[in-house]
Amino acid sequence: MRKGLSIITVVAIGIGAALFVILGRFGSIPSGLPDTNIETTYAVLSLFSVLYGPIAGLLIGLIGHTLKDAIFYGSPWFSWVIASGVVGLVVGFAARSIRIHDGEFGAKQIVRFNLIQILANAVAWFVIAPVLDILIYAEPSDKVFTQGLVAGASNIVTVAVLGTLLLLAYAKTRTKQGSLTKEA
């Protein structure tokens, strides 16, 4: 039994976090609703979590969000950093039951992925982020729960649409197991 993270996981965390930083800064597109953006970075975080598992997802969320806040906004907002980590962690648990590397991503996997991502985003943005905002920054609860609700809802929709699209596109690039057929 090997100890610690495998090499590919270490590199995936590094590159994934760098992607999180860039998409978190440049990858948000207007949704049409006021003050709500489609944060494409969470769709990509979900994809990486499904590809590389819960630990990678957790660390990509934590490292990526910390670096993004630090480099572009001057100081990390830890309550939301932790929430991003939780999203990566929980979505990563889907990795076990979805064998995306074998190109398997049909209706059943789509439903499973979306159930898990809704759970992940709900826990992170409706509970963890606002509660930590209150504990760490002593902000008014109405404000932080409203913010969490908006962010969570928009992330759930983003991952449901864009995340699913990306996973479908990725699955197509992989060769299915047992896809060879004998020519008559």
Binding site: G4, L5, V10, V11, I13, G14, I15, A17, A18, L19, V21, I22, L23, F26, G27, L59, I63, G64, L67, I71
Partner: peptide, 24 residues
């Protein structure tokens, strides 16, 4: 911090400019 995680952070910082260029 475990050196594997430290190395992952180092990789992230190294590749941020590259990925920014790719993205653009």
């Amino acid at each position: 911090v475990s050196y594997r995680i430290a190395y992952a952070v180092s990789i992230a910082m190294r590749y941020i400019p590259d990925i920014q260029r790719d993205f653009h």
